[in-house]
Write a protein that binds this DNA or RNA. Structure first.
Lengths: 334, 334
DNA sequence: CTATTTCATGTTACCGGTAACAATTTCCTA
DNA sequence: TAGGAAATTGTTACCGGTAACATGAAATAG
């Protein structure tokens, strides 16, 4: 109705000072029941929406936690987010998401933008950042938690799994099952450091057993079922004798499985398949595909807990680095 | 290094006034090349991150566009978001996402929170909001665009498709193919108004041709391939003679297809399947499933364009309501 | 060489709340 | 019923920038 309701308008209408109105609306203590009710009523009736910009500037506190992830399409980050949200719900903090697009410079911009709002915490995927970003994160006056990955040097707090080890472990499983003619298919490979680490751990562990990768494909584009299928077809055409393919993501291994379904190859008899992440799309397939659970939800939860703990403690929290243990499930495809 | 760099610190170090430093960092006009360079250098060297809270309070402008969607898990909203982002990239505006969880009261909270930051625009999925939310949106002093759906009364601007019509159209296609024993499977049905509308349009159009739905399942939980498979199994057990199932989402129809693969039913000979959204997961399957493209990306783009246009125009933009035309693709499953 | 612009920089006030502290009122207790 | 603690409300200053206007310096004109 009216132009803009300000706190002073609410206060005037309620016949109290701005300060009292402010306290009433924030349900701060030291306001009489009667006054509080009256102020709240008036505020509601007039659709007053407090200006948090002013409030935050004055109180020097912002109830937001910045969360920076590479992408929302990949099926993997929504679950991290959901872990974060569920923990933050017990607090006044709210998550705000920024997308870095697997690009360090984009990440720098996004993080600068988020920090410029002085959030109460920052959760960022990955340990790899450009120099400017590292400076910002080090100097940020809020807790910073790097998540997903622990292979590297955390700036301070860190929650994740070792992707190198995940790659090695899957290699061990695959070797244990007797496969020897093995291929690897990955996406976003120059930019997705974690996929890269899995690849490194994987091929290293194979090599340690005297097994060389027969073929590997590093596709620059996004992962999708369609590309998984496409790349699998290509690889199997080049090497019809492959007995196992390890993918950088479940999305891709599902694509590989679709190729097998479409061409009548039987899994794992003709070719074994293994992915990574334990995505929801694996559930419900006719065949259970091998994968590694990346503990995504748990990572989100722990990261949020660290932010909360840091907020509560008076002095700066000592660095925390949590390494979670991903679980491999062999399913029926290995 | 130092505690907190403020603009005044940068200014002092550069030997200029705060105002000049401010202008230099915002690349405002009226600053000499030399001064600008110097200020920028000092700011960068000391890792100065401007305080946008203060800046926005003073300039009464916030370069953020609030985007409120029900969920990020459903595979459908990331693409809307991506349309929004791509358009906003040509402007200084940045999207900020909020999740309403298919709950009107949660939506109210999220929208209040977002509006309290005084964004330059608000894009919200759906036309259904509780009363308090409607009031807020009406009184908001920024352009508000309701997206995805046009079946209802937009508050002001609106971009979407008619889900009622989408349901009717799919019914027509299914009837045209000669199917008569038809079932429907939907999820989130009390809360997902758009799925509900498709169902209504669908059954209405069938009824108009004298065909009654043989069975329909309204599942409260989230849609997933696994539940799609599960519910399909249940429905086919109850009604082995069904010749076609229409799902509220492609995720579910993929689940149905998985059931058929697993049990040896052939699609569409034994049972025809149709979904909705034209999600990316459909690509790469051995069989192309029938679906309706919901124009998600385009919806995001147009919504963002409306926000930009409203921002540029001096007076308030007249209401815009754009109805996009979803395209059905029959694929090979009908 | 002075008057008039133009360009670059500085000054002042204010954005809309809230912390900190002061003042007032209410409520007890002796 | 006075005196003091407790509960409530008000006053003042300030958060960290930026708009608007004022000022000073350099450039162009006559």
């Amino acid at each position: 109705m009216t132009k803009k309701m300000l706190l002073k308008d609410v206060a005037r209408l309620a016949g109290v000072s701005e300060m009292t109105a402010s306290r009433a609306l924030r349900s701060a203590p030291d306001v009489s029941k009667a006054t509080r009710t009256k102020v709240e009523e008036i505020a509601r009736a007039h659709g007053y929406v407090p200006n948090r910009i002013a409030g935050s500037l004055s109180s020097q506190s912002v109830n937001l936690v910045a969360v920076v992830v590479p992408s929302l399409n990949s099926f993997v980050f929504p679950e991290v987010l959901s872990g974060i949200s569920s923990v933050l719900k017990q607090s006044p903090l709210k998550p705000v998401v920024g997308i870095s697009g697997y690009e360090m410079d984009e990440e720098e911009d996004v993080i600068r933008e988020m920090l410029s709002w002085r959030p109460s915490g920052l959760i960022v995927a990955g340990l790899e950042h450009n120099e400017a970003t590292q400076r910002m994160l080090t100097q940020a006056d809020c807790p910073v938690v790097e998540v997903m990955d622990v292979d590297g040097t955390p700036l301070r707090h860190c929650v994740g799994i070792s992707h190198l080890q995940a790659g090695r472990d899957m290699a061990a499983q695959i070797l244990a099952q007797g496969y020897r003619r093995i291929g690897f298919i990955g996406t976003k490979m120059p930019q997705d450091f974690r996929a890269r680490k899995r690849f490194d751990g994987f091929s290293e562990a194979l090599a340690a057993q005297g097994v060389a990768l027969v073929d590997s494909l590093h596709y620059a584009g996004d992962s999708s079922i369609a590309t998984g299928r496409q790349l699998t077809a290509e690889m199997l055409e080049r090497h019809p004798d492959l007995d196992c393919i390890y993918y950088s993501s479940d999305v891709m291994s599902v694509g590989g499985y679709m190729h097998c379904l479409a061409t009548g190859l039987s899994v794992p008899q003709d070719v074994a398949l293994a992915g990574f992440n334990n995505l929801q799309i694996l559930a419900g397939l006719p065949l259970q595909l091998a994968t590694t659970d990346a503990c995504r939800r748990q990572i989100g939860e722990r990261a949020a807990e660290i932010v909360l703990k840091a907020r509560e403690s008076a002095e700066e929290l000592p660095p925390i680095c949590e390494t979670l243990s991903p679980r491999i499930s062999l399913g029926q495809s290995l």
